[in-house]
Simulated scan of single mutants.
Amino acid sequence: METRSSMSRSLHTNRDFEKLEPYEGKPSCTVLRGEEGSNALDLPDRPADMEQRNGRAVRKGNTVKLWGNNTVDVVIYGTEKTLDAYKFNLLKNKQMFINQINNGTIAVRRIDEDAMDEDNGMNFAEFVALLSGNTDLLEKTKLDNKIMQLEKEQAIFKKDRIRAERKIAANQEDMIKAESAAERMTQDWEYITSYTGDRTTRLLNLAQATAEETGRELHRISKTYRNGAISTIGTYAGLNLSVYSEYDMGGTFYRNTFLVEGVSGLKYRCGISGALPLGFVESSRYPQAALEKLPGMIEEQRQKIAKLESEIPTLETIIARKWSKADELARLKQECNALQHRIDESMKEAERTQPVLSGHEAGDKAA
């Protein structure tokens, strides 16, 4: 078995390995099997090409990874303080821009190309402006960058305010629903506490049955009933008892759920899931057990309302805020427009003053 070092030397000298398809018309610098790593002397124009070229060395099937701790070397060459740094950064920003669009997280449809080099702190637009010899171009580039950053901040500020407005609307809607539910539950609880009649569960087909017989019949219904519609099966304290079948997403029967309907129209499950207790006598008393939980359910709605109300003042503060940099942004845009007008005028002046060559002179110039 060859070691990693000896295999590496053989890879550099052996030219009979299977070559991959050419990259942009050039012979590929990687091989499919036994590739030690990737060495790139040039940079592609698209991030996907960079990932594809690097992936040729690291993908599954590279036998060198068996001797290299499942790792390979990806080496990319570049020179500091040259356009190589700009191209690396351009690839990074292209991929960032693509990810922002795919994820829906981009605030504005412009991105800062950042600095060409971490030492000189110039981006490509500033570099071009400096080489042109026109200081107005350089100044406008700097203004454009400042405007873009402020527009990003403004977009985030507006997004926070819109989110706060929607949250207030949702809280108010939830508060109305919670208040309505609490009122209806209170109405049902008042009915139950003031009811003086018979509190025995009575089924329609077993009107005079004992508690055990009633519970046994409820268990039979639980096992045999199959109907997605809510059906009334009996009464308790003047309230209707109902059952309906639940099905999963595939249409397969899941379980039967028992309900007791209050005078307000709200329906309360037996326990949490709607399933009956194991004992027959306990099953016959499920309506009473379900209704006894009403005070706790009412308190939960009150707590929900209080929590939603407590969030509104903070959200209103966010909506009432004003963006402090609006005047600065307007001023910078005005200065940028003035610079652009000045640049346009200077370009027109340069075109007017440029000498026009005759046909003979143009031929000599070309020669």
Score class of each variant (00 low, 15 high):
residue 10 S to P: 01
residue 11 L to K: 12
residue 12 H to Q: 15
residue 13 T to D: 01
residue 17 F to R: 12
residue 17 F to W: 13
residue 18 E to D: 13
residue 19 K to V: 09
residue 20 L to E: 13
residue 24 E to D: 12
residue 26 K to A: 05
residue 27 P to S: 04
residue 29 C to L: 14
residue 31 V to N: 12
residue 35 E to N: 11
residue 37 G to T: 05
residue 44 P to A: 11
residue 45 D to F: 11
residue 58 V to H: 02
residue 58 V to I: 05
residue 62 N to K: 08
residue 63 T to L: 14
residue 63 T to P: 07
residue 64 V to S: 09
residue 66 L to P: 07
residue 71 T to Q: 13
residue 74 V to M: 02
residue 74 V to N: 09
residue 76 I to D: 08
residue 76 I to N: 10
residue 81 K to G: 02
residue 90 L to P: 01
residue 92 K to C: 06
residue 95 Q to M: 05
residue 102 N to F: 10
residue 103 N to R: 15
residue 104 G to F: 07
residue 107 A to I: 04
residue 110 R to E: 13
residue 113 E to S: 11
residue 115 A to S: 04
residue 116 M to V: 09
residue 117 D to R: 07
residue 119 D to W: 04
residue 120 N to D: 13
residue 130 L to V: 08
residue 130 L to S: 10
residue 131 L to W: 09
residue 136 D to Y: 13
residue 140 K to A: 06
residue 144 D to I: 04
residue 147 I to A: 04
residue 149 Q to S: 11
residue 152 K to P: 02
residue 152 K to V: 15
residue 154 Q to P: 02
residue 156 I to Q: 15
residue 160 D to F: 08
residue 160 D to E: 15
residue 163 R to V: 03
residue 164 A to P: 01
residue 165 E to L: 12
residue 168 I to P: 01
residue 170 A to R: 14
residue 174 D to M: 06
residue 182 A to F: 06
residue 183 E to Y: 09
residue 183 E to G: 08
residue 183 E to H: 11
residue 192 I to P: 03
residue 199 R to Q: 03
residue 199 R to Y: 01
residue 200 T to Y: 02
residue 202 R to Y: 00
residue 203 L to N: 04
residue 210 T to R: 04
residue 212 E to V: 08
residue 212 E to W: 03
residue 217 E to K: 06
residue 217 E to T: 01
residue 220 R to F: 09
residue 221 I to H: 02
residue 225 Y to F: 15
residue 225 Y to R: 02
residue 226 R to P: 01
residue 227 N to R: 02
residue 227 N to T: 00
residue 232 T to Q: 13
residue 233 I to Y: 00
residue 242 S to K: 15
residue 243 V to F: 03
residue 248 D to T: 05
residue 249 M to F: 07
residue 250 G to D: 10
residue 250 G to H: 07
residue 254 Y to P: 01
residue 254 Y to F: 07
residue 255 R to E: 09
residue 257 T to W: 00
residue 265 G to Y: 06
residue 268 Y to C: 03
residue 268 Y to A: 04
residue 270 C to M: 07
residue 273 S to C: 05
residue 275 A to I: 08
residue 285 R to T: 09
residue 294 L to N: 09
residue 297 M to P: 00
residue 298 I to L: 07
residue 300 E to Q: 15
residue 307 K to D: 09
residue 308 L to V: 00
residue 310 S to I: 07
residue 312 I to C: 05
residue 313 P to K: 09
residue 313 P to Y: 05
residue 314 T to S: 15
residue 318 I to V: 06
residue 319 I to G: 05
residue 319 I to N: 05
residue 320 A to R: 11
residue 321 R to L: 12
residue 321 R to M: 13
residue 325 K to G: 02
residue 327 D to M: 05
residue 328 E to F: 04
residue 330 A to N: 13
residue 333 K to Y: 01
residue 335 E to W: 00
residue 337 N to V: 03
residue 337 N to Y: 02
residue 338 A to W: 00
residue 339 L to P: 05
residue 342 R to K: 13
residue 344 D to A: 07
residue 346 S to E: 15
residue 351 E to V: 00
residue 353 T to N: 08
residue 354 Q to E: 05
residue 358 S to I: 04
residue 362 A to N: 12
residue 362 A to H: 11
